[in-house]
Computed example of a mutant assay.
Amino acid sequence: MPKQPRAVLDTIFAFPPNRDTLGATAYLIVENETNILVDCPAWDEENQKFLRDRGGVSWLVITHRGGIGKVEEIQRAFGCKVLIQEQEAYLLPKLEVNTFGSEFSLTPHSQVIWTPGHSPGSSCLYYSAFGGVLFSGRHLLPNLEGLPVPLRTSKTFHWLRQIRSIELLLARFSPETLNFICPGANTGFLRGKRAIDRVYQHLVSLDLDALLLAKAVL
């Protein structure tokens, strides 16, 4: 029996990992009449019904190239707008998409921020409710202790830029404006938690200079 999407916070839901996106986790933000889908969940009957029952999808935000799944089918079903950073829009050549450079405001409470490094067009979605929630895609992921870290892999586009993107987030936010991360993968390391809390404090404590010397993992 397929797993049900589960509530993370009152208006945020996480979908089960999607095989089409190498086990990535997609999220739905239910915000008045503007529902935002972050990356692509598995396109099965259970998820389709879940989305319809909550009013459909207004925006589909792709946080990185690995978050691309059944974009065409989702857009056709809900007539939603698709947003992707301009450097990765070529990956959706047959679709009508919206692109951005550094940042893009979806609603008064939701902005997408370019955080390159993991991939050229890697980005995070910031939602100001609940003390600030960052949907980090694969830019920041939980480690074995469930803490948010950048992960350097053999497919990382540019490690220095990924570290600099963390510095950008620290300069932009504060402990009062960044409380949670909803990561786009490795959610099994959260061990039953729905999100990573006290995020700003964890990011401040990272030794970014030491991270720059980290070796890539497979």
Rank of each mutant, 00 (worst) to 15 (best):
L211P: 11
R6S: 15
V61I: 07
L160G: 14
K49W: 12
C124N: 13
A77K: 07
L151E: 02
P120L: 09
C40S: 14
Y27V: 04
S105Y: 08
P116R: 15
Y126L: 14
T107H: 09
F180N: 12
S205P: 06
L51K: 01
V112H: 10
P183K: 09
L92Q: 07
P2L: 13
L125D: 06
V217A: 04
V8N: 09
W59E: 07
L168D: 02
Y90M: 13
Q4C: 10
A210Y: 11
T156M: 06
G101D: 11
G188I: 05
K193Q: 08
Q48E: 15
W43T: 04
H118L: 07
L125R: 06
E73S: 13
V30C: 15
D10C: 03
N186A: 06
L91T: 07
E33L: 15
I196P: 09
L147W: 12
P142C: 13
G69N: 05
S119M: 03
L22C: 03
P148V: 10
F78C: 02
T115G: 00
N18R: 01
L212A: 14
V82A: 05
E103S: 12
V217K: 11
L206D: 13
A7I: 10
R172A: 15
A210K: 15
K193T: 10
T25E: 13
E176W: 08
V61D: 04
L92W: 05
T156G: 09
C124W: 02
N47S: 11
T25D: 15
L60G: 04
D39G: 06
G56L: 08
F78P: 01
E72D: 03
F135M: 03
K3Y: 09
F78M: 05
V133P: 03
I113N: 01
S123G: 11
L140G: 13
L140V: 08
V97W: 11
Y90Q: 14
P148R: 02
P2A: 13
I12M: 01
I113R: 00
A24K: 06
S136C: 08
Q4E: 06
N47K: 12
P183C: 09
T25Y: 11
E72R: 10
H139K: 10
L9H: 01
G69R: 04
V199L: 07
K49N: 15
F78H: 02
E46C: 15
A14N: 00
N18T: 04
A210P: 14
D10W: 00
T156D: 13
G66Y: 01
E145V: 03
F173W: 13
C80V: 00
R161I: 07
R191E: 06
V82Q: 05
E31G: 14
F135G: 01
I68A: 00
P148Y: 05
G184H: 03
L22H: 02
V30K: 14
K81V: 07
E45G: 10
